[in-house]
Nucleic acid binder design. Structure first.
Lengths: 348, 348
DNA sequence: TTGTATGCGTTATCAT
DNA sequence: ATGATAACGCATACAA
């Protein structure tokens, strides 16, 4: 901007009135004479006055802003989550500051600090993949800063949480594969330090056991959300002496990466291998083969996170006891896991 | 936070020194006695002092923050763009405030205003799909606010721009389809008010003409980035008395939506219909069929946008003449457009 | 109805 | 090397 933006002082000078009056007029306070107000408004318009939010926030010691940190906005889950958080926040007069940790807890730490310095009134965080050290989040807890953990969490953190029942979801998905004839189901899981990985593995094992199937460790592989590690693990899986006939993956992207790798190895899906996954990304409905996947109520999760956060913010000095909202999931069954009469592509 | 966060005043009181000294010590200014500094640091640590960025920015009248407005972060293009913008900004000591317009210029307008009030030093904007009225962006231009338009722009706006050569990209893609035997190529374009739509249509037409093929209007359909409109248009296309044997779509998502629709109609790809598209989203490499798509140098575009923006910010009062950076694209050829000996799925 | 004075948390310009 | 003091742009308690 060329010349410095107009301030209330400028308006006051033009009209030869006090800054206080300008302030009151701009905020449409009732005590102000209608003519004064109109004059102020007019000059404000002329000077293209825009209130300085920094100053406003400083003097009120309130920003009505919440900080959101997610691993990566290029995952549909997180961008959709962000959307619902923004929507819910906006409706209560809050705005959000978004940061990506890029799956790095170091970067997350920086973001936490910056957000504190920006005086956000609370945090909604989904932990990064490499969550080894979450001391900085721990510190937020100790500070009694309003905080909600969404989806990716650890159980060492005593905080408000919004999560899905991963154990149950995983159980359902594995069960589905078994019911569709799979005898040897492998699991392509996420990083072992993430709780969701372990919960999903537990649900997977439980389903196997409940059907009297063995839960072999050789069928459980971890990958770190990168395509390379996924492809490597998928190939490793299919090169076993007794390759699996079912596959549960921790995300749709990982499922498709794996399927991409298996395509080179002439593995037919679902005939040779049935696949079920997590996240139900939009593209899973229109790829070939369409993918059986666990749907999470993303929108409700965002809304709930905001609700829990505002509850903490509004509670003022009284420190609330953390509560956890567990949401239900839904298994969306598609081509990748169901034997069809026709080849999965209608026109083969 | 339960009790109000510590300020420099608190540190000063504890050590019985002046606030000015504390300020200097915290900023590690050389004139401060080493013992004083250490003491200040220690107390700051004890009180868990965090500088108030609002106050800092207010007094310095600088935020070192840039505002970024994109239509939707759930598009890979925009989240990738954001990542490279953030990276480039961070390296020069800037941080970014991200907003999504949700393809609505009304919401964009609100965001522009909020960003101004937050004292951002410049804007990087990619226009929303319904850009009918961009008066608010126009006003930024008139204000001489540092501004860079990326990708989605209009030619009525006299601003710095970073775009790709859409005409050329479209020409190349269409040409590729022709060379692979397509005689009747249709085009599924975006909203007609977006310049990129028209540029791509122009390139498409030019390619047809250059090969002596007719450019029929009945083969050019618009859709608004929603799945419904895409499917509708795709079906309409294939129901023509002479359906196309080639299809150019404006985005990968649209391509897959269309292919999804055509799957129901037993259209084989690439045998019956060859498809080329724009954006080269990551999933286009691992879906079936993999998708021929125009790759845009997203990362460089972000870096360039930041460069142009900083140039304007650093120029201070002197108003720079807008310049436009046109970047080259690359056609990534995959299964969807090339007749293969084998059916596209190796194990049919 | 309006003005004066003070403070929000920080930096910066003077002094000392 | 340190301390007073005045800004930054705004809101507000108190006066008038």
């Amino acid at each position: 901007m060329k010349n410095t933006p107009a301030t209330m002082k400028d308006i006051a000078r033009v009209l030869n009135i006090s800054i206080a009056t300008v302030s009151r007029a701009l905020r449409e306070m009732p005590e102000i004479h209608i003519d004064t107000r109109r004059a102020v408004m007019r000059v404000a318009e002329e000077l293209d006055y825009q209130p300085n939010q920094l100053a406003k926030n400083l003097v009120k010691s309130r920003t009505r802003t919440i900080g959101v940190i997610v691993p990566n906005l290029s995952y549909y889950f997180f961008s959709a989550l962000l959307n619902s958080i923004e929507e819910a926040a906006m409706q209560t007069g809050y705005s959000v500051l978004v940061c990506q940790s890029n799956e790095s807890s170091l970067r997350e730490k920086t973001h936490v600090q910056n957000l504190i310095r920006s005086q956000v009134e609370g945090f909604i965080i989904s932990l990064p993949g490499d969550t080894s050290n979450c001391e900085h989040v721990e510190r937020l807890v100790r500070r009694n800063a309003p905080l909600v953990l969404v989806d990716r969490h650890t159980d060492t953190l005593e905080a408000f949480k919004v999560i899905v029942d991963n154990y149950d979801a995983s159980f359902k998905a594995t069960n589905h594969l078994i019911e569709n004839g799979c005898k040897r189901i492998a699991c392509l899981a996420g990083p072992p330090q993430l709780l969701i990985s372990n919960q999903r593995i537990a649900g997977y094992k439980a389903a196997l056991t409940s059907h009297g199937l063995p839960a072999t460790d050789e069928y459980i592989l971890h990958c770190d959300y990168t395509q390379e590690s996924t492809i490597m693990q998928a190939i490793r899986l299919m090169n076993l002496t007794t390759p699996p006939d079912g596959l549960l993956t921790i995300s749709d992207r990982i499922a498709y990466s794996a399927m991409y790798a298996l395509k080179q190895k002439n593995t037919r899906i679902p005939d040779d291998l049935k696949v079920a996954s997590f996240n139900n990304e939009p593209f899973s409905a229109w790829l070939s083969p369409t993918l059986t996947s666990v749907n999470q109520p993303i929108q409700q999760m965002g809304v709930e996170a905001v609700r829990l956060l505002l509850m903490q913010i509004d509670s003022g000095d009284t420190v609330l006891h953390p509560q956890t909202t567990v949401m239900n999931t839904q298994l969306i069954i598609r081509e990748s896991s169901v034997r069809t009469q026709l080849p999965y592509r209608v026109a083969a």
